[in-house]
């Protein structure tokens, strides 16, 4: 009968399936013709520079923004007409902490449980507090928590109504490495239980922890697939050069034909190009320079992203 019941009878493999989403603010296209699909039980990384349209896309998925054009489904529900049902089954964690700072941990969780109409909101909140390891601090105001604990609480509130899909908007921004690691372990545990996750991030190490990634820049989706697929898709050949004076070398190499991307990594430099022969030719004059050590390496995800970003910049400037 309804889409919801269909979903429960035979779960489709795809939990997010949207096509040609476009959204403009004040005449500027923030999201431009984005199509993406996320499969059930997978962690889908959503990457891109600041202002690339990640948050806008996520908001369109959960009904907080109406797309100017495009359509699709989220958990089998139409994102344009069934956002009420999507809200019930989706946990959305905003970029900025958006629980009530002047309510205690317990009061916030009970509020969420009541809004979602869960039976025994007190019991549910208590269980969540225990799971989060916040027992004994439940009366503390949410606004007094540290960044890491706020993020844990926000995630706890998100998964309290047992959603089928989590939309996490830069959940680990401003959180220390230990808390980030714990957070990702939790996400993987949830995905193992069948929860699907779309998570936006800036961090490369986090991207590599995702099953699949999508890269967006200037509102356009530039690459999608597993980490290996995205790297392979760029077709880059990479050399790593290390030595005492590499930043000087960067300036010399910068505009040589055949070199598509240069990026410093500590005391070494990643030099990459899409045409292997042209790249070899470009670096040939420098290969025998004393002190420099050249090594042919595999391009990293970061190389791929920097290259994608450069190319999209060229297209939009």
């Amino acid at each position: 009968m309804t889409a919801a019941e269909t979903y429960q009878v035979d779960a489709p493999e795809t939990v997010i399936d949207v096509h040609h989403l476009t959204k403009s603010f004040g005449g500027r296209k923030v999201v431009d013709d984005v199509s993406m699909s996320v499969k059930k039980g997978r962690i889908h990384g959503f990457l891109g520079p600041n202002g690339s349209g990640k948050t806008t896309t996520i908001r369109m998925l959960c009904g907080l923004l109406t797309p100017d054009s495009g359509d699709g489904t989220c958990l089998g529900f139409d994102i344009l007409t069934e956002s009420d049902r999507i809200r019930r089954r989706v946990g959305y964690m905003t970029q900025k902490f958006s629980l009530y700072q002047d309510l205690s941990i317990r009061e916030n969780l009970e509020f969420v449980a009541r809004v979602y109409g869960l039976p025994d909101p007190r019991g549910k909140a208590g269980a969540a507090i225990e799971r989060l390891g916040l027992k004994g601090r439940e009366k503390q105001l949410a606004g007094e928590l540290s960044g890491g604990w706020k993020q844990r609480l926000a995630l706890g509130a998100c998964i309290l109504p047992e959603p089928a899909l989590l939309l996490l908007d830069e959940p680990t921004a401003g959180v220390d490495p230990k808390a980030r690691r714990d957070f990702w372990n939790e996400i993987h545990a949830l995905a193992a239980d069948g929860l699907s996750v779309l998570v936006s991030t800036h961090y490369m190490d986090e991207a590599e922890r995702c099953h699949e990634i999508a890269y967006i820049a200037y509102g356009k989706l530039l690459a999608e697939g597993t980490v290996d697929e995205v790297i392979a898709g760029t077709g880059l050949v990479t050399f790593t050069v290390s030595g005492p004076d590499v930043h000087h070398l960067q300036g010399e190499l910068e505009n040589r034909p055949g070199i598509d991307m240069i990026a410093p990594f500590g005391t070494s430099l990643h030099v990459a190009g899409r045409d292997a022969a042209a790249l070899e030719q470009a670096i040939a004059p420098y290969r025998d320079r004393p002190g420099l050590k050249w090594e042919k390496g595999e391009p990293t995800l970061e190389d791929a992203f920097i290259d994608l970003m450069r190319r999209s910049e060229d297209n939009f400037k």
Partner: peptide, 17 residues
């Protein structure tokens, strides 16, 4: 809505929250 079939209170529950 179907998603809240197990929920209590419905509209009143949300108002109360």
């Amino acid at each position: 809505a179907p998603g809240s079939a197990n929920g209590n209170g419905g509209s009143f529950g949300r108002f109360w929250a």
